[in-house]
């Protein structure tokens, strides 16, 4: 088992950096996770931020976390081509110990906007996902992983997610970021026990764990249901720290535990102090676990025979359905409007299985899509 490193999600944001700085001054931060594609269009990155990235890169303690690739878009997009080219360029400037992306497809026609939502688990989506992961791995030339999604439409999807991730990652020998707050959302939203859900994930594929905070939202579609959302704008709940303590020992190849929080949740001095306390609590848990772990791991998470498919996998029907779903979620004025539009759409009685979607999660999907619509 490798030594586990305590890390922060650290990006070019005044409030995030302000919260991280005392931890860095105390030499507490052992690695940083950088959302590299958030800066793809920034013409001039400050030299001090590049120096910070280089310092961690030189020690093989820099990990990349992409946001905008839209892994399961049914159509291959020019923006994805550009994204890969920029990743290749960034990977020559910095040495990533690994690179990760999010599961799902981005809502909205404009590639760089929207939020990732789930897709049907079919042979078509499996083929597309595997194709994209091979291209990402070829661009960055390091281990590649995916993060489990917080959002699911149904309990059925929740139960299938781990196995689908496993199948998806196999050709690139990839790994999973197990986001424990995402898991916490599903434990609550679908009332499934932790032991049941965690047993459905291939935990020998977990190389990184995320912890973060979120928020509660009342459901109008299914009162008095409260939906847990992964908004990254609050402190880490005690329950997520408990999940961390219970999960680490189950993951033999875990290397990074990362604390994430959005800059908009770190504006006040109190929130910065809370972030630092959360980090120290996380670090203490990691240190305790490290004390009883051996230091050897033979899992490289690199593909034995890396290949790029000659033809780009696409699915025109899937792409049309993704656009249709995005439009419904982004424009429906009410939950009832959304349900009616879904029932009369091409998604009805299809692999999307909209008939099984939980009402309060359709409502949540609308809120997410409309929040991030541009």
């Amino acid at each position: 088992m490798p030594k586990i490193l305590s890390a922060v999600a650290c990006n070019l944001d005044v409030d995030i950096l302000g919260a991280c700085l005392p931890l860095m001054e105390a030499s507490k931060v052992e690695a940083i996770e950088w959302s590299f594609d958030a800066l793809f269009k920034v013409k001039e990155i400050p030299s001090w931020f590049l120096e910070l990235l280089t310092a961690f890169s030189d020690e093989q303690r820099l990990i990349g976390h992409g946001v905008f690739f839209s892994l399961f878009s049914g159509k291959w997009l020019q923006e994805q081509e550009d994204w890969l080219r920029q990743l290749e360029h960034t990977s020559t400037a910095f040495r990533f110990d690994h690179v990760t992306e999010h599961f799902g497809f981005m809502t909205g026609k404009d590639f760089h906007h929207g939020a990732p939502l789930n897709i049907p688990y079919t042979n078509a989506t499996l083929t597309i996902g595997r194709d994209r992961l091979r291209r990402i791995q070829a661009a960055c030339q390091c281990p590649v992983g995916l993060e489990n999604l917080a959002f699911s439409y149904s309990l059925e999807e929740v139960k299938q997610h781990g196995a689908f991730l496993d199948e998806l990652l196999a050709p690139v020998n990839g790994f999973i970021i197990l986001d424990l707050h995402n898991l916490y959302c599903q434990l609550h939203n679908f009332e499934i026990p932790f032991d049941t859900l965690i047993s459905l994930y291939p935990l020998d594929k977990v190389r990184e764990i995320h912890i973060s905070g979120g928020s509660w939202e009342d459901s109008l579609a299914a009162p008095p249901k409260k939906v847990r959302r992964d908004t990254h704008d609050d402190a880490v709940p005690d329950a997520v720290f408990e999940l961390l303590e219970n999960t680490i020992d189950l993951c033999p190849h875990l290397k990074y535990v990362v604390l994430e929080q959005l800059g908009n949740g770190l504006i006040t001095a109190e929130s910065k102090t809370q972030f630092q306390q959360d980090f120290l609590r996380m670090e203490a848990i990691v240190a305790e676990k490290n004390a009883t772990r051996s230091t050897e791991s033979i899992q490289s998470f690199l593909p034995a025979h890396p290949t790029i498919p000659a033809h780009i996998a696409e699915d025109a029907t899937l792409y049309r359905q993704q656009l249709e779903l995005s439009a419904i979620l982004e424009t429906a004025a009410t939950y009832n409007d959304a349900v009616h539009a879904l029932q009369t759409s091409s998604l009805a009685h299809s692999d999307w299985r909209i008939e099984t979607w939980a009402p309060y999660m359709i409502e949540t999907a609308m809120k997410i899509a409309q929040k991030w619509k541009k």
Binding site: V14, E25, E30, E51, F56, R61
Partner: peptide, 16 residues
């Protein structure tokens, strides 16, 4: 991980 004092100072300056 230990960062150099000059880098930490540059970050402090950089984030105002």
């Amino acid at each position: 991980m230990k960062l150099s004092k000059s880098l930490l100072s540059a970050i402090v300056l950089g984030i105002g």
